[in-house]
Design a binder for these strands. Structure first.
Lengths: 355, 355
DNA sequence: ACTGGTATTTGAATCGGTTCAAGAGCGGTC
DNA sequence: GACCGCTCTTGAACCGATTCAAATACCAGT
């Protein structure tokens, strides 16, 4: 579709209408400044030439503002539609952008260079960085020189603008909920703590480089501590966030423990859901035999059977704060923390009698 | 964050390095053309000035290619993350774009004007139009003058480039499947056929302006006709695609029919899933009492309990074809039709004895 | 006829790069 | 010493608009 007819530009229209280019520009952007007669003459010329209106490309250069924000992740682009958390958050980001008439571009950091569409080259006014563990993204974004906000940043660098959540508080609330229901034998299902199924030590959870994993662990312990339950009494299962290793880990836990746990505190809804699945297959009733609390509040948690009690992120607020940061030049000075809320559904209930 | 220091541009770097702007440009884009010594001099100057590399804005104007495609819908932006079908398709589109190093921008058609980010102003190389009934989108895209492809276009205009699916064939396969299982009393759950719960006449289904609804209906009838079942023997339930009116419609059907259907042919997975839900609540077993076939093949269909037999769209192929159309200038001449495939899961089984 | 004021238009600068024909510098040949 | 073939560099045009100070047109008032 190589155009032989070279593109018609504003200049051509102006020429044909017998006006200056400046006037032609005004016809399209500030019609009230142009006399009616001239206006229609220009429109007629545009019509005759098949001019579609000022090209955004040209405008951009002059105006500077693209009126769009980019969301970047280290994962491939389809992550934004495949991952439950990302999808849930992006939905709010999209809604906020829509309400403000701004565009939304998805950016993956994989291939960069002057060739591919990356943080270096995306035509946007700023970035929302979905960082998980790699501050790499932040570094690249800084290089680009556009405003950016990190979401769920995994490092505690104070000078990086970030909108984050109170993992500690949310986790503590989750633990308190179980404690209030009478649970005393509780296990944690972790994420990002290792490769194989099995258990992790509290030290590992305390020292992982993933800040939110650390904080969630600390929160769980803090809540349990209020009932006199110490970290050493709480097994930590190693799982992948995609839920792949939860089965074996749970099997080991339920077979070898002298006292089987009556409740599970998961560090993400995905692992919680995987646990739910495993429990169902084992014929264990939820919450009859085992209660389960998730983390994140993804839509799947609500749809699960039984629906999952979980600590929900304030998606809308995160989106609003982050988008405003970019669009209103209101970059947070450092890390801003938003509260989470415990949503109680049907996967938690009173502790049954200990065996 | 108004910058007082005015932006550093390539020209500044060139000046400071004592080379021409053209050479400076080459340093960043075609380093092999520049002598090592000069190259490092320019880099040093860039470093000193805090120059982040050529701005995409400038490049764009000259180069023409944005290297990104826009996906547009008439719905608000969050539709792309909230709607199961859109999300599923976008996931593939994203994957294809990622593989080609292209960007992905989401566009809603709501607010346009020179102000908001719409089809008129999005900085992309072309559009994928998710049309549902309104050729409005097509019209706007034509005006913009960029290449575009319509997805699931609801009009049969032959000159609009479109990547579409064989609704008729898919629906026929679904009907054949039920027939082969011995079902003879079958109802159709329609979409886009009206406002209230209740039934629609075959005439209505034949004349609706939604092409794919028409085609799916025709396909169902064609498959059933092979077993001697005529359209007049098949009630058509009116439902909203969001599943909201399925319950009442089904209730009416199951209470008033002299012969209760043993199987349901749904025009979308969403209504099928809603039907599944209703049946569960009524204590009717699927597929024991009633078999259900969906349409679209969204991820939720697989996750449902029981998993839903459905006619699956070739998402990957659609995405590949459509993205290639834009990025490779391979716009289809007219409507291209891709085949669907029946995925048999656990929501369909042999017909039980008629009551 | 001249003046002041308002409504339109114009022209030129700018935005930030890319591109490419033409020129400069240089080592080697005949 | 003139000429050739190379490798780098330069300079200027161009991409498609927006913007704004200055120029012009038009009109009422005196």
């Amino acid at each position: 579709m190589t155009r032989l007819t070279k593109t018609i530009k504003l200049r051509d229209v102006a020429e044909r209408a017998g006006v200056s280019q400046g006037t032609a520009s005004n016809v399209f952007n500030r019609p009230e400044l142009v006399r009616e007669e001239v206006r229609s003459r220009v429109h007629a010329a545009a019509q005759a030439l098949g001019y579609a209106g000022p090209s955004p490309k040209g405008r951009l250069l002059r105006a500077g503002k693209v009126n769009a924000i980019g969301v970047a992740a280290a994962e491939p682009l389809d992550y934004f539609f495949a991952d439950p958390w990302a999808r849930r958050l992006l939905r709010e980001v999209a809604a906020v952008c829509d309400a403000r008439g701004a565009g939304l571009a998805l950016v993956s950091v994989g291939r960069g260079g002057p060739l591919g569409w990356g943080i270096e080259s995306a035509l946007v006014d700023g970035f929302l960085l979905r960082c998980a563990g790699r501050e790499l993204l932040v570094e690249i974004a800084q290089r680009r020189g556009l405003p950016f906000v990190a979401l769920s940043l995994d490092t505690a660098e104070p000078d990086v603008p970030a909108v984050d959540i109170d993992d500690f508080g949310g986790a503590r609330d989750a633990a308190r909920h179980l404690v209030a229901l009478g649970h005393r034998h509780i296990a944690i299902i972790g994420i990002g703590l290792g490769d194989g199924p099995g258990r992790a030590s509290p030290e590992l959870a305390r020292s992982t480089r993933f800040v939110n994993v650390r904080e969630r662990a600390r929160g769980f312990w803090a809540g349990l501590a209020e009932a006199g339950i110490g970290p050493e009494d709480v097994p930590i299962l190693v799982g992948q966030d995609d839920g792949s290793m939860i089965g074996p880990a749970l099997a080991e836990l339920f077979q070898t423990s002298e006292v089987r746990p009556t409740a599970l505190l998961a560090m993400s809804d995905r692992v919680a859901l995987a646990a739910l699945d495993w429990l169902n297959h084992q014929g264990l009733r939820v919450p009859g035999d085992v209660s389960v609390v998730g983390f994140d509040g993804v839509p799947e948690a609500e749809a699960a059977v039984p629906s999952l009690t979980t600590v929900e992120q304030p998606y809308r607020q995160i989106a609003e704060r982050a988008v405003a940061a970019i669009l209103d030049d209101a970059i947070p000075a450092g890390r801003e923390v938003l509260p989470l809320s415990l949503v109680i559904r049907n996967s938690t209930g009173p502790a049954h009698k200990a065996d």
